[in-house]
Write a protein that binds this DNA or RNA. Structure first.
Lengths: 206, 206, 206, 206
DNA sequence: GATGAATGAGACTTCATTCAT
DNA sequence: AATGAATGAAGTCTCATTCAT
């Protein structure tokens, strides 16, 4: 009798649409019209499922955060050695498989940019990063000792910053050829936690 | 009788205006009217001195790049020890003195965001980063040896990424209290180049 | 097997919904969605029972007119003295009992506003007022004499205008504290029909 | 050299435009496009001179209030007798000369409607009415005695309400033929202040 | 050089109405 | 009868850019 609800599916489609457009054009150019087009929907429908454009972005942030957290969790669980867990955490953030991963990174950078000036985006972006930071801190503590909270947090910050920095440079410059980000971060990690002088894998491209 | 030309001064004022607005609102909200207001000029005048809005941004990128390069150069020259020079380079990028420095960082992050999707901005942004990268690579080579080109470049990339990442996290999260960025980067540097296990200065804030 | 018809009940619910929304937001903001919400129904159902939004408003006007007419009739009948009947008529329009009365007045004012520019609303609004005017004229004639038709109509107009004016000022200004409207109109009536100088009940609030 | 300002003139034109459209279509249908058309301007220009549509309405309210206050003042001053002053006040509100007067009344009614649900409009509308009320109260006190503050205020309210009611009925019904409003209100006034039974001028129309 | 008005495109959003289920 | 999704038009507002003065 009654028409079955399809809101969740539509919302997902719209978020997908934003993800595509965001990765390609950035938030400023991500007009509702374009998002609807990318999702294959009528423009008016977008506002039936989302109160406004911002809500789509917030939903996307949460989706990305969850997806990443899930991926990280899956990989980290597969190792039992604390150091290996740490490596798994970092790899989960940097190993880029397919185009969707690339789009996700581009989106994440764009979201970080939007967070700089939009308080609501900032809120969820910060929350996601702080979760990540807390997780990373815990993993580091497992390596360097539970007592070293402050050190662990400082290292976590450094690593997160390095990751975000590689995202940024990776999407906008040619300083980071494919695969180099992961190598750099792992080298950085080894330097921080094994105390040995580091010799990162060679970087050949410009 | 011709009035004295003041084009350069006006251009500078306009660039200043953009810098203020950009640091506060981001590029999307940096309307010409707002820029003119911040510069204390009439809106129409902006397009007399710049072909379009984008040109102001490009000019700002160059100014920021030059200012930074100059500051770096000044500080690096004051040391003669290669390691100290390296430290000076990094400090020059992270030590935040006054509000203007903070605004400059906010602008730089905003510019990086814009570079993600605007090819012309990307071009100058990349050029600035590649200059910086080349400079940093050279300084690293002075520390680890001229032959180790690839290693030096990889380390340079890692450090630059960590710097940009600290900018990003610093402007959008509370993960990096004042002064922590510099400490983290120096600790990172020492880990990379002295081979000792690193104990960064304690980070107390959330 | 046919389901039992409940069209009339549904229509009433929808009219109730409009009444609530109209009293609170006015007709311009009374979207079908909001009306349906207030009525606890699905938006699509509204157009099943009403051809369009306007028809709901027209139905509401008639309901309010009928309700008022009924209330007036009931009260007027309870008195036998012509002057008392007149008083009853006026009281029936001004004595505000509960919240529903207040909402009804707010609606009536909003309807008057809509009638100014919407011919169909104007038609039913006018019809309601002319009925009221005719009734009032008759009651006045019972007081001042059957022959004085023109005088009676002029007084009726004056009284109706004063009533509508008190509605208007009451809903939008603080010039009319609770209870004052009735006192004013009764004083006005006495002045018109008893020829004595009038001393209305004191008005204390601003 | 510099372009001369014409903001005041343009603002007036836009307010004129709104006045025309408001009198004809009401506020809900008074789109910016229509207002601009009525004013003979490009739509975009409206927002150059007014922050938003509401500000035009607020400006119109103030203009109408000022115009009326001025007209009233002018007429009231011409008489020295307190009773005559009172008559002048009322006539100034009801005597409708030309089309512009009619438009002004239609606008005023529309504004009253808008004031019912828009707090900002309500504010200026109330202020205008309270000024009018204060003025009228003072004039009444000159007739019935300075001491009778409360009585004077109650009468003032009654008269203002009757005036607004005549506006309302006049714009939406055919109960008030031309000239009748003034007659009714004057009859009402005489009834209130001279104590004599009132025989208003005959009302012939339906 | 400088001012401020003017233009028109395009953004976000709301909404009455229709329709598939 | 009833539900809720879908559509497309229309509205308000912002803005880069142009232009008369």
């Amino acid at each position: 009798m009654a028409r079955p609800k399809n809101t969740d599916a539509r919302r997902d489609e719209i978020i997908d649409g934003l993800m595509q457009v965001l990765a390609q054009c950035g938030y400023a150019k991500a007009s509702v019209k374009r998002i609807a087009e990318a999702a294959g929907l009528a423009p008016g429908l977008v506002h039936y499922h989302f109160k406004n454009k911002l809500q789509i972005l917030l939903a996307l942030v949460e989706r990305l955060a969850e997806t990443t957290a899930l991926r990280v969790e899956t990989r980290v669980e597969q190792d039992s050695d604390p150091f290996a867990k740490l490596e798994a955490f970092l790899s989960a953030h940097l190993a880029r498989g397919d185009d969707e991963d690339l789009a996700a990174v581009a989106c994440w950078v764009a979201i970080g940019a939007e967070a700089q000036f939009n308080p609501e985006v900032a809120k969820v972006y910060r929350a996601a990063l702080e979760d990540r930071h807390a997780h990373l801190t815990a993993l580091i503590q497992d390596v360097i000792g539970r007592r070293k909270v402050a050190t662990a947090r400082a290292h976590a910050t450094t690593l997160l910053a390095a990751i975000e920095g590689h995202y940024q440079l990776g999407t906008t410059t040619s300083l980071i050829p494919a695969g180099q980000a992961e190598k750099n971060i792992h080298a950085l990690m080894r330097a921080l936690f094994t105390g040995g002088a580091v010799r990162p894998s060679l970087q050949t491209s410009k």
